[in-house]
């Protein structure tokens, strides 16, 4: 390390340069000896410690807990192997909760995507008042889901809710339907509420993506005789697919974890007809304190999310390639 320095030890500032050279080389040696391999780790250590403490450790601990019958009100906390997992799939309630979650996610996200797409296309086509429309569309996304739940609960109210009132005006007779109290419509009400809040999110992503599409290719397609529908399916959709996949990914993950709206709107009722996986986990884990069983349910949900993420990311990667 000293040799290269010698090259600079000439001229008027010989003494000073020599001192600098020695100091630098000493620092370099120290760094090389102590930190060479470990320096990157030292830099990431704080974040790594946080990730281990708040993500990796709790996840592993949940996995560990899921093999025990851990309930604070019981004297023993025995190891039961896959007992909790077996119970999850044998009682039917968790499976039902997964099915409800899947239904809300598939129908909800599909509607959000379709409406978001349509709206983005509409706003882009007519540029008047675009800024105002985009600003207004941001509002539902910015409202807390709990507030959305309580607000929509009032909107769906049988006696005082404006939804029944508007339907009454249309049908020219009083409508006093209990949307949230009937199995057939409670899920519908949840999906509508979700779509109302999250379509703007989908819109914003798609709007941003569609704004970047080159207008010239559409002009060329038009000259070639492609109709609006053809342009949409054969150009817009393929070009937008990576963005669509990301948008769907974000929304699907969010929807699978849905809790707030269920908690405020239906509490899983009537019966267990609107109980989602997250709500079920909350109930067994935090209301009944069945922590081992709740952990098992969380692990299963985590696995489902991981599979979904892998699938969608692979699709995205192949699309990008």
């Amino acid at each position: 390390m000293v040799a290269p320095c010698l090259r600079h030890q000439v001229g008027r500032h010989h003494q000073k340069a020599l001192w600098c050279c020695v100091a630098t080389s000493t620092a370099q040696e120290r760094t090389g000896r102590i930190g060479g391999r470990w320096t990157p780790w030292l830099f990431v250590a704080p974040s790594l410690a946080i990730v281990v403490a708040v993500t990796i450790f709790p996840t592993l601990y949940s996995l560990y807990l899921s093999f025990f019958r851990w309930e604070p009100t019981l004297a023993d906390k025995p190891f039961i192997g896959f007992g909790n997992y077996q119970e999850l799939f044998s009682t039917g309630r968790f499976v039902n909760a997964l099915a409800v979650t899947a239904l809300i996610t598939i129908v909800g996200v599909a509607l959000e995507l379709a409406v978001g797409f349509w709206f983005a296309d509409f706003v882009l086509a007519d540029r008047r008042g675009q800024r105002l429309v985009v600003a207004l569309m941001l509002l539902p996304v910015m409202v807390m889901p709990v507030v959305v739940g309580y607000t929509w609960r009032l909107l769906w109210d049988a006696a005082y809710g404006p939804i029944n009132q508007i339907l009454g005006w249309i049908l020219l007779r009083p409508v006093e339907y209990t949307w949230l109290g009937q199995t057939s419509t409670a899920l519908l009400a949840i999906i509508v509420t979700e779509v109302w809040q999250w379509t703007p999110f989908m819109f914003l992503i798609l709007y941003a993506g569609m704004s970047t599409l080159d207008g010239e290719i559409y002009e060329a397609a038009e000259i070639d005789g492609a109709g609006t529908w053809q342009q949409f399916w054969r150009m817009t959709v393929p070009l937008m697919l990576p963005i669509v996949i990301v948008a769907v990914l974000i929304r699907a993950v969010d929807s699978i974890k849905m809790f707030d709206v269920i908690y405020t709107l239906t509490g899983g009722a009537p019966g267990t007809s609107t109980e989602t996986a997250s709500y079920y986990i909350y109930q067994v884990g935090y209301q009944f304190f069945r922590l081992g069983y709740g952990a098992a349910a969380s692990i299963v949900l985590l696995l489902i999310l991981s599979v979904l993420l892998t699938f969608l990311l692979r699709a995205l990667r192949s699309r990008m390639a």
Binding site: G181, Q182, A269, P270, G271, S273, Q283, F288
Partner: peptide, 20 residues
């Protein structure tokens, strides 16, 4: 487990109110 039993009963009651 008193609360857990009653939640199960509660679910039966709301299901019946909804037409079950």
């Amino acid at each position: 487990g008193g609360r857990e039993y009653m939640v199960a009963l509660d679910q039966a009651i709301t299901a019946a109110y909804a037409g079950a």
